[in-house]
Nucleic acid binder design. Structure first.
Lengths: 137, 137
DNA sequence: CCGCATCCGATTGGATACTG
DNA sequence: CAGTATCCAATCGGATGCGG
């Protein structure tokens, strides 16, 4: 544990946070669309999004299957989330031509790439929920 | 009760998401405050929040130091973010009694625990930014 | 079965101005 | 320096109802 975390309170223009922003693209002074962190946040932001992603992680699901697994989500929001995912290339939609119209939403490879992020969210969230070993007077 | 997924693509996934939701607490059918993922999302959600966290990751900073590092954030929003972080126990604030009033916000151990999450956001976001190797089976 | 259209209340975040 | 207070435009998300 570091008590003297910061002895150099001056300029930090050259000294970089090597672990947080490895390359130049990540060093932004505002929430810019080109920042990787913003891109990832955009992909998972919005209510129900992470739950929809979790359901689709197992495999393709239809619109109503998603609705039955997430009973409290409205059709409007689910539709918005699905379009958001597809427009970003994280999911796609396959339709059967016949009748009744069957659809299946599935994650693309890019969508599947979100898995480690969901896991990180779960793990860090769990850590925050623990009664805590905090206190650093 | 549960209809089997007939069009099961069959590759790589089990019926139960052991990696995404290891314990029962994580299996929610709606965005509930007790879900670890929601807790983590709550900690990093809101515009500028991740940038504020990144700045505080190096060490304590005062209110205006944060403003100068993030020139485009308004005082109102920065104040809101800082209160959000402190109320969740992710940061705290130390004041010097004299004049002019000096303050310093610093992350607590719980706040520092967010680092792997920020890194995951960066890495996954970078992956999403790559020109892509899409195409699928 | 698969959605989109619309209305509407709640929340967000930016700009500005003001206090200890 | 370190914030708070207020106003306000934009967005979000829930409910409902209709169309393909």
């Amino acid at each position: 544990m570091h008590s003297e975390v910061d002895a150099h309170a001056g300029h930090q223009t050259e000294t970089w946070d090597s672990s947080l922003v490895p390359d130049s693209r990540g060093r932004t002074d505002r929430p810019s669309p080109g920042c990787p962190v913003e891109v990832a946040l955009d992909a998972i932001s919005g209510r129900w999004t992470t739950l929809v992603l979790r359901e689709l992680m197992h495999g393709p699901l239809s619109f109503s299957e998603l609705r039955s697994r997430l009973p409290s989500v409205s059709a409007k929001v689910l539709s918005e989330r699905l379009h958001g995912l597809t427009s970003r290339g994280l999911a796609d939609c396959v339709r059967t031509a016949g009748f009744p119209p069957r659809t299946a939403y599935r994650l693309t490879d890019r969508g599947l790439a979100l898995r480690p992020l969901l896991i990180a969210l779960y793990e860090v969230g769990s850590e925050l929920l623990t009664p805590a070993a905090p206190s650093r007077p």
